[in-house]
Every structure is written in C-alpha cells, then in structure tokens.
C-alpha cells in the first residue's frame, strides 16, 4: 500500500500545482507527476520483491523490466523539464506570473497582425 499512498499524495500535490497560476508551479507539478509515475512503474513490477537484480532468479529478486521503464521515463521527463525551464527563461525576467498579459482576446490580432518579433524565420 505504500506505493499507492505515495502515488496518491504525489499526484494530488502535482495536480494542485498544475492548476494554479505561475509557470514554476506548473514545472514543479510535472516533476512531482513524473515521480508519481515512477513509483507506479516500480509498483507494477511488484514491491514484494526487493532484492536488486544482479544474480539470477530468486523469490525476492525484483522484476527488472519496470526499473528499465522507470529509468527511461526519468530521463525523458528530465529532458522535458529542462525544456520547460528553457521556455520559462525565454520569457525574460517578467516574473513568475506566468502567462503574459492580454493573451486571451487579442490572440488573433497578434498572431495575425504580425508584430515585429513574430517573423517566421526570415
């Protein structure tokens, strides 16, 4: 049950962060969500077995496959977290308020009006 409880609290916290304002909170939310999935993956292998997989089959030896999955997942989410940080930084020092102002209704005008910064590579 440890894994279930851990997944539960991690997911709850993550969702709480994701649904709030601020980009940093969203990033941290995704980090926690990643943790939750890793715990879930290990639990999927069966947490009854807890001996590291180094020497052959045994009653207590873990299922190694979910660990490989978890490793892959950790690395991928690490990469994407870095990218999210890159997006955060590209915003400039505007602050953690996240969403730049006036994005709702004027989105059209900007995307269509093509401000100077919105060149498409030329």
């Amino acid at each position: 049950m440890t894994a279930a409880v851990a997944v539960g609290v991690l997911v709850a916290t993550a969702v709480h962060l994701l649904l709030q304002r601020g980009q940093l909170r969203v990033i941290l939310g995704f980090v926690l969500l990643g943790h939750a999935v890793n715990v879930l993956l290990l639990s999927a292998g069966g947490l009854r077995r807890r001996t590291p997989a180094f020497d052959g089959v045994g009653e207590e030896v873990v299922d190694p496959l979910p660990q490989a999955f978890a490793l892959t997942a950790i690395v991928i989410s690490f990469g994407i977290t870095l990218y999210l940080l890159g997006l955060l930084r590209a915003d400039g020092p505007a602050g953690d308020d996240g969403e730049p102002a006036g994005e709702d209704e004027s989105a059209d005008d900007r995307s269509a009006g093509e401000p100077a910064g919105d060149g498409d590579g030329r």
């Binding site: 997944v7 539960g8 997911v11 916290t13 649904l19 639990s43 069966g46």
Partner: peptide, 23 residues
C-alpha cells in the same frame, strides 16, 4: 480536484499492481 485525482491514482495503483507474480 487534486484530492479526487490523487485518490483515483492511489486506487488505481492499489487495484492494478502487486496482484500477480513475477511476469
């Protein structure tokens, strides 16, 4: 919503994992 989602995730983990032998 966070609480409900957490509960769902916990329930899913509890219900679907640890209930079979080594794959």
């Amino acid at each position: 919503l966070a609480g409900a989602t957490g509960l769902a995730a916990a329930a899913g983990t509890a219900a679907l994992t640890g209930r079979r032998d080594l794959s």
